[in-house]
């Protein structure tokens, strides 16, 4: 466990050192980037629309009953942009992309492709890890911005459609604008940026330490996803605490 953490820190450090030369790997970065988008855009859309909707549904009637109708937009807006969008999307991406990273790198490890790279004096960190880290670190925050917008739309839609809440689209967004500030959005996007590194480093590390055949790959994939999610949730608390002031 502690050994893994240490190895991951070293992996992160060595990746950062290799970052300045990452432009040479731009094709791979673009490939990874579009793969992430392709694989997850639709799911992000559906997930965030329904999350926005359910938050509106849970909080709307309660607030409206107590005469706080003009707080609904703010509550839904804040909870989505500061918490739900970054965390849920990161978890989604950990499952969708982290698993793919661990599986790809893990199978390269098991089938000696990484050994072959090393004999050609090509660093696996430079060749495999850095493009994936850069791609996910750019893609996830963008996906989260997108998810925030779709989530708000979902909230607004439910507020206007549900007869117990009954707040119009325009009224929802006016109250949302009153309460949600640009720094709240930045706050959420920043968190997702950190989570992107967590997913990337954990998954690539699990891939690189894979041993023993196809079952080993399966184990690595599971560990990559589970460990990413656990770390995301813990870090989320810590980051929220720090960013709260």
């Amino acid at each position: 466990m502690f050994q893994n953490v240490g190895e991951m820190v070293i992996l992160l450090w060595r990746s950062l050192l290799a970052m300045p030369r990452c432009w040479r790997q731009r094709e791979k970065i673009f490939d990874q980037f579009f793969e992430i988008g392709n694989a997850s855009l639709l799911m992000v859309c559906i997930l965030s629309f329904f999350i926005g909707g359910v938050i509106a549904l849970q909080t709307g009637p309660v607030l409206v009953e107590r005469g706080l109708a003009n707080a609904v937009g703010g509550v839904v807006g804040i909870s989505i942009c500061k918490e739900l969008a970054p965390v849920m999307m990161s978890i989604l991406i950990a499952g969708r992309i982290g698993s793919a990273m661990a599986a790809e790198i893990g199978s390269m490890r098991v089938y000696q492709e990484i050994d072959a790279l090393r004999t050609m004096n090509i660093s696996p960190i430079h060749y495999l890890v850095v493009p994936r880290l850069v791609a996910i670190a750019v893609a996830l925050p963008l996906l989260v911005i997108f998810a925030i917008l779709v989530g708000w739309l979902g909230g607004a839609f439910v507020c206007s459609a549900n007869s117990r809440i009954d707040i119009s689209f325009a009224a929802f967004f006016t109250t949302l604008r009153d309460i949600v500030q640009i720094k709240d959005v930045v706050n959420g996007v920043f968190k997702s940026f950190v989570f992107a590194w967590v997913i990337g480093v954990v998954s690539c590390h699990q891939g690189l330490i894979t041993i023993g055949g196809p079952r080993g790959i399966g184990r690595s994939v599971t560990k990559a996803v589970v460990n990413s999610i656990v770390l995301i949730v813990i870090l989320d608390y810590i980051l929220t605490r720090i960013l709260l002031r």
Binding site: Y111, Q112, E113, D115, A116, T119, M120, N121
Partner: peptide, 16 residues
């Protein structure tokens, strides 16, 4: 890094 080395793996180890 100093010398050019190459290895032909028993399994080939091509990048799939």
């Amino acid at each position: 890094d100093e010398y050019r080395l190459a290895m032909v793996f028993q399994s080939g180890a091509l990048l799939n």
